[in-house]
Design a binder for these strands. Structure first.
Lengths: 205, 205, 205, 205
DNA sequence: TATGAATGAGAATTCATTCAT
DNA sequence: TATGAATGAATTCTCATTCAT
């Protein structure tokens, strides 16, 4: 249902219509919420008509589904690249945590939309998105467990709880991060990684 | 605008109408979201008419505002009781983190509602709620800073970042906690407190 | 249904409750219109409760009916006093026109309310008010006709049309008169009387 | 917001939807008042759905605004055509007064709507309409003043007051005129013009 | 006399979606 | 591919009035 050929009638900018719609929708959903944003607003901001939107997306829900799909795909690939890479579990864990934070900050709007709108979707879509997110969390949890086996992570903590602990901080970023604030994404990533890893690390005697 | 006298006309149960409305609204908002829940649904579930609701609350937003007010008041008082109590900063920090988790789990619906609906409110209400939440976070941050001064908390971490780190985990609870899951609130509270405090603690040699 | 005993609980000022309600209602109806003014607003402004209002007046319509009744009674008595008094028809006509203008300006709010709200009333009430107004116009028309018989008013004009002509100007006063404007009520009364009488007078050779 | 293409789907009659809505709304507003007429009634009578109405008009107020706009435009053009035409001031004044009366009677419903509903509009719209009406009155006032300069109108009357005097009679027409009454519009126009002009004219010796 | 909680019917408006062109 | 008029159902909120106390 989604094509990518560049629109014939060049509107706002040169990007293909579906991409423009997604970008605009992401921005508006993040700013005002999914339900507060009308299809009319989206198409106006994207410089197209409703008919055009319904040509590319089957519904308003479909828009958000696509936003989720892209975000989760991106994050999953990034995590897997690191988690399946070289190094000790502790090293990969540190690299992954910092990377997740930085990449989340780079796509903050998408994350905010997901946080605020997931519960509004039709149940079966919601289930789909949750399943994908679970796979993602699971890969992280496995890394923690690997750390326990290699002796760098405390054996007495629950890998599940540790994963929730970390992703809580990640999902919370959208609530307080300001791009004009004192801390740079890199610093935040390293700061959170340090605290998190310290929190689950075996104490060096 | 809210009185507490028990309704004269026999309604669903004995609680005063405003309380009944708030309880029902909290449950529905948490389950389906604020925007997906109609005023009609709320009053039907509470066994009153729309007119009655608008007699006590000036709008649908007013309902959610009141839910927030009660929740934040509760949490603030609880945190202050502990933070201003006896013991070293490290002891109070541990007690407070575990308590926040347990009390959040005890009012999970309210927290979920706040998380999902805050961004829908009128800007000035949102600002108000955020200000109150900021005071709350600030009290926690001060406790972390106090720990740094007494030497129990690492000097190289940012108390702000640490606070966000912890409250991220707290706000995330509603996403994964199931009352029929493996972990009891107490255990979760202690597990998170352990990880968090370990993460920011000065390493004992 | 309307009593006049002074209210026991002295609210806003000392006037009896029904009078206070009528005064407040007149002011509000004139300012915002009948339908835009809620019963709640009226009772709030009068410093009483809804129950009290419904004790004295059977409905919101009843309030306006009473405003009309008082205004029309006042004007009718005033007109009759002059019309039935001494002097030539021409003298009485001049006196009456000036007096109607002055008295209309003195009760401008009531007149505005009548103008804007008459068409909203239940048909039988409307018919009642119109009948009373017709009697009032009729008395004026008779005076014009008397002028024709005594030779001071042109025979070729329609007394009906002349009456409408004059009362048009009177009803229009509320649209443009400002108490802080350049002209005093007395001057307006005399100006309008002069123009009107000149317009219908037999030309003196 | 208003297009004129004839509706595709077969509706009541052939006129474009916006025109049909305005015609129907004018009739209903005049008969029952603006506030007593629901949007549902209007769209039912026009044979369209509410959605269609809101496609063309942004609100119920917008309907009335458009009715005003059309009426005032019509009357202004008509008055200017005469006032700026040939002839002495006295001649143009007579022609204008008669014409205003006849044209007002030809659009009686619109005038009644304006009289009864202007005070209900949002302040800034009201101000806009009043400004336009003021320009209209001003053109008439200028004509009276011109008559004073040419010596045909008495110097001791206020052109302002004379204008209010005349437009009072005009606005009052809707209150008493019946199309099945004894007087034809032409006769009423001439009768009122005669009285008005006589009232302000310099007496011929 | 007076209170004010509660009713219940109805108001305007919004909006995702469809479909003839 | 794209348009935009039209649908129709749902939504929040208002308000005159009643009635147990």
């Amino acid at each position: 249902m989604v094509t990518t050929r560049t629109s014939g009638r060049g509107a706002a900018d040169g990007a293909p219509v579906p991409d423009r719609l997604l970008a605009v929708a992401t921005r508006l959903f993040a700013a005002q919420g999914f339900e507060r944003t009308s299809v009319q607003e989206i198409v106006d901001a994207a410089g197209v008509t409703k008919g055009a939107m319904y040509h590319y997306f089957s519904s308003k829900d479909d828009l958000i589904r696509e936003i989720y799909r892209r975000l989760l795909g991106l994050q999953t690939r990034s995590l897997e690249r690191i988690a399946d890479g070289p190094g000790t579990a502790a090293q990969r864990l540190r690299e992954a945590t910092a990377d997740v934070v930085v990449s989340t900050l780079a796509h903050l709007d998408d994350g905010v939309v997901l946080m605020h709108s997931l519960h509004l979707l039709a149940p079966h879509i919601r289930a789909q998105v949750r399943a994908e997110r679970r796979r993602y969390h699971e890969r992280f949890r496995a890394l923690v467990a690997e750390g326990q086996r290699e002796g760098s992570v405390r054996a007495d903590i629950s890998p599940d709880l540790a994963t929730h602990h970390f992703f809580g901080a990640v999902h919370h970023l959208g609530t307080w991060y300001r791009s004009d604030g004192a801390l740079r994404p890199r610093q935040i990533g390293e700061g959170l990684a340090e605290m998190f890893l310290n929190g689950i690390a075996v104490q060096r005697p």
